[in-house]
Design a binder for these strands. Structure first.
Length: 353
DNA sequence: TCTGGGGTCCTCAATCCC
DNA sequence: TCTGGGGATTGAGGACCC
């Protein structure tokens, strides 16, 4: 979906159309969640940018607090349209999905029709990439933003992207790009030309092979319909770093209770209880403990979380505190339906994002 | 005026069991 | 009894994504 949260906001405030809109929190440490295309063009505002920087660059933009229940609802509308038009739809987050188009007579016409239905029924626009794999569909969908539909074969992509940074590949982030650059590898063509053994030495056998196949734009990741929840967490960044033990503990209790409430509403119970602490110098520390039986009971989770925090005993001011539960009894929520996974071989995929 | 919140997956080490 | 090779599980840390 294109600038999804901002677009949902514009849908209910049409008078803001044409103005730069930035969706972000209001605290001193908030970051930008979504910027409308106007805000992006005018001042280079993008998601994950500190909201304070955005406000400095573009004081006259419209700043809105995120309203996730509205975004969840809009997302549900869009995904329902995808599902009624296609057998195999994998939803990734609120604003992104993959559609398996294997065996569909005219993928392009099908996706064009779906995009039209989304626009007419929700007032929102999406960008679509159609290619031979999940990864290529995703990269291709970026080319059409906003509201475009692009079809690209692997052959065409190899040629078109050979001078691009390896960071173009989803899964290759800033750390990997820097490491590759230090090795003299600056483009996908450079990466493709590497001996797999060299990449395996630097990145480990698995990651090395993965990098090499991705450099050749190869990907056979299947589209899976059901995503099983593996963990759930609640965390908060304080407006001002906290040193006081009692204050930390009281925040931790609240977070644990909030997490348990959400877990109960989804009927999820986990065995591994963990805490996360981010210090003022940005170091992250996690501690966890696995209990005998699965739980979502605050009477169990809260004492374990408190014990973990006391045992760690942070020696610096704390910036962020979080609680996590994992190790759910497999199946309670989402019985994984393997039968919907398409057969291997050449996949034809569309991505609406 | 630095840098959110909710996730997934991977690696590595330690430990336990077969 | 000694030794070693797997798996599985746990725990910590880190990269990455939306």
């Amino acid at each position: 979906m294109d600038a999804f949260y901002a677009s949902v906001e514009l849908r209910r405030r049409p008078e803001l159309k044409g103005q730069p809109v930035v969706v972000c929190g209001s605290g001193p440490r908030a970051v930008v969640t979504t910027a409308s295309y106007e805000a992006r063009k005018l001042a280079g505002i993008h998601s994950a940018m500190p909201a304070a920087v955005a406000r400095r660059r573009l004081p006259d933009a419209v700043y809105l607090q995120p309203d996730f229940s509205a975004y969840r609802e809009a997302s549900g509308q869009v995904m329902a349209i995808l599902r009624r038009n296609a057998e195999t739809v994998e939803v990734v987050g609120l604003d992104e999905a993959y559609v398996d188009l294997t065996g569909i007579f005219s993928p392009k016409a099908t996706m064009r029709r779906i995009a039209t239905e989304i626009r007419e029924e929700t007032g929102l626009t999406c960008s679509i990439g159609i290619s031979e794999s999940r990864m290529l569909a995703k990269i291709t969908s970026e080319l059409g933003k906003p509201a475009g539909l692009v079809v690209l074969s692997r052959e065409e992509a190899l040629e078109r992207f050979s001078a691009e940074s390896p960071g173009l590949i989803p899964g290759v982030g800033p750390k990997s790009v820097a490491k590759l650059e230090a090795m003299g590898i600056r483009t996908l063509a450079d990466l493709r030309a590497q001996e797999p053994s060299l990449l395996e030495r630097s990145f480990g056998p698995r990651q090395g092979r993965w990098l090499h196949s991705r450099a050749n734009l190869e990907d056979d990741t299947p589209i899976v319909v059901v995503h099983e929840t593996k963990s759930q967490s609640a965390e908060t960044t304080f407006d001002v770093d906290v040193r006081d033990r009692a204050e930390l503990e009281s925040h931790l209790v609240q977070l644990a209770e909030e997490l348990c409430r959400r877990l109960r509403s989804r009927e999820l119970e986990g065995r591994t209880i963990g805490i996360k602490v981010r210090l003022d110098d940005w170091t992250n520390v996690t501690r966890s403990h696995t209990v005998e039986g699965a739980t979502n009971d605050p009477a169990v989770v809260v004492p374990v979380a408190l014990d973990l925090l006391r045992a760690y005993d942070p020696q610096r001011p704390v910036r962020l505190l979080g609680v996590r539960l994992a190790g759910f009894d497999g199946g309670a929520e989402a019985a994984d339906d393997e039968s919907d996974v398409p057969p291997g071989g050449q996949l034809q995929l569309g991505q609406a994002a």
